[in-house]
Design a protein around this nucleic acid. Structure first.
Length: 299
DNA sequence: CTCCAGGATAGAT
DNA sequence: ATCTATCATGGA
C-alpha cells in the first residue's frame, strides 16, 4: 500500500533535507524513522492506526502517503495535516530570524550552515512533557532509552516491512500505573511521579495544550506548568519551545545550549544563564530558534 | 572512583 | 528573592 493522501505546500526558508538530517541524528529515536527519503511515523488520530510516510515533491510540497492502515476520512486527514504543520513549524515566517541572524556573529554562520532548518516540534503535549521530564539531568542517549522503554511498555506498535513503528503512550494508558512500575524502567522516583501526575491532569482535562495556548501569554503558560511538582523552568521552557511553539522561549539553564555557546565562542567555561541573556539581546523574539540552531551544532 | 549529562526541590540565608 | 545541599541514574 502506498496511497497519496494529500500534499502540503512548503513555505519559503524551509529545507526538508536539512530537517531530515536533524531527525536522523539519533538512531535511538523510537517515535519515527527518518532517512534521506523521508520520515515514517505511526499515528493514532481517530479510527485506527495509520502508518504515514512524508516525502518531498519538487522541493516545494510535502506528500503524506499511507503505508498501512485504512484510508482515513477527511476530518482525520485534516488532523494529520495540522499535526504535520505543527511538527515542522510550516506556518512560521522565518524571515525576521534570518535577518537578525545575518547580523549576529554567533548565529550568522549557523543560519548559513543549517539554512531552512525548522524547529522540529512535539505537537502532542503529553509526549512533549514526558520527553522533557525524561531528559532532565541525564545524557540524551539515556533519555532516548527511557522513552523507548516507556513507549514499548505503554504505547502501541505496528510491524511493517521489517521495522517496528511505535506510538507514544496516551495519558489514559498510564492511569493505573504505579511509581514502582515506572521506576522498574530506570526512571527516578521524581520522573515517575511527575509523569504520572501529568498523565492524570491531562486525562482529567485539567491540563491541555489548547488551554495553555489560550492563556494570556507564554509566560503565563510556563507559570502554570511550573506549578506542577517536578516541572521546573527548564522543562516548562522546553515545552513552550517545542510544543506550544513560542519562538521567544529561551531555556537558559540548558546545559547543551551552554556547551554550544562555550564551544562556538571559545569561552574557557560554560556561560551562566545571565551571560546567555546578555548574548541574546539581538535575538529578541527568536530565542527558541537561536537555541535550536545552537543545539544543532552539538551533533 | 570522579565527573558530567538538553534539572528540580526543600531548606537556609 | 537568591544560594546550596541533595537526589538520582547511566556513560565516559
Amino acid at each position: 500500500m502506498n496511497d497519496l493522501l494529500f500534499e502540503l505546500l512548503l513555505p519559503e526558508l524551509f529545507d526538508y533535507a536539512t530537517c531530515l538530517e536533524y531527525m536522523e541524528r539519533s538512531a535511538l529515536e523510537c517515535l519515527y524513522r527518518a532517512d534521506s527519503t523521508g520520515v515514517t511515523r505511526l499515528f493514532e488520530l481517530g479510527s485506527g492506526p495509520l502508518l504515514i510516510k512524508l516525502t518531498m515533491r519538487d522541493g516545494s510540497f510535502i506528500q503524506a502517503r499511507l503505508l498501512h492502515g485504512s484510508v482515513p476520512g477527511i476530518e482525520e486527514q485534516e488532523r494529520l495535516a495540522r499535526y504535520i504543520t505543527e511538527w515542522f513549524d510550516l506556518d512560521r515566517d522565518l524571515t525576521p530570524f534570518y535577518t537578525l541572524a545575518a547580523a549576529d556573529p554567533l548565529l550568522g554562520p549557523l543560519a548559513v550552515r543549517f539554512h531552512g532548518l525548522r524547529i522540529v516540534g512535539i505537537p502532542d503535549l503529553f509526549e512533549a512533557l514526558c520527553w522533557a521530564i525524561l531528559g532532565q539531568q541525564v545524557n540524551l542517549a539515556f533519555a532516548y532509552r527511557l522513552k523507548q522503554r516507556l513507549t514499548a511498555e505503554y504505547g502501541r506498535s505496528m510491524e511493517w516491512e521489517g521495522h517496528t513503528y511505535y506510538c507514544f503512550a496516551r495519558p489514559e494508558d498510564l492511569l493505573g500505573v504505579s511509581v514502582e512500575e515506572l521506576c522498574a524502567l530506570q526512571l527516578t522516583r521524581s520522573k515517575a511521579r511527575t509523569i504520572l501526575e501529568v498523565a492524570a491532569l491531562l486525562a482529567r482535562g485539567e491540563l491541555s495544550r489548547e488551554a495553555l495556548l489560550d492563556m494570556p501569554s507564554p509566560e503565563a503558560a510556563e507559570k502554570e506548568l511550573v506549578a506542577i511538582r517536578g516541572i521546573g523552568p527548564w522543562t516548562a521552557q522546553y515545552v513552550r519551545m517545542r510544543c506550544l511553539r513560542d519562538p521567544s522561549s529561551f531555556p537558559v539553564g540548558d546545559v547543551g545550549l551552554q556547551n554550544a555557546v562555550k564551544v562556538l565562542t571559545g569561552m574557557d567555561k560554560k556561560p551562566t544563564p545571565a551571560e546567555l541573556v546578555g548574548l541574546s539581546v539581538g535575538w529578541r523574539g527568536w530565542e527558541a530558534y537561536a537555541t535550536f540552531y545552537l543545539w544543532r551544532t552539538l551533533y
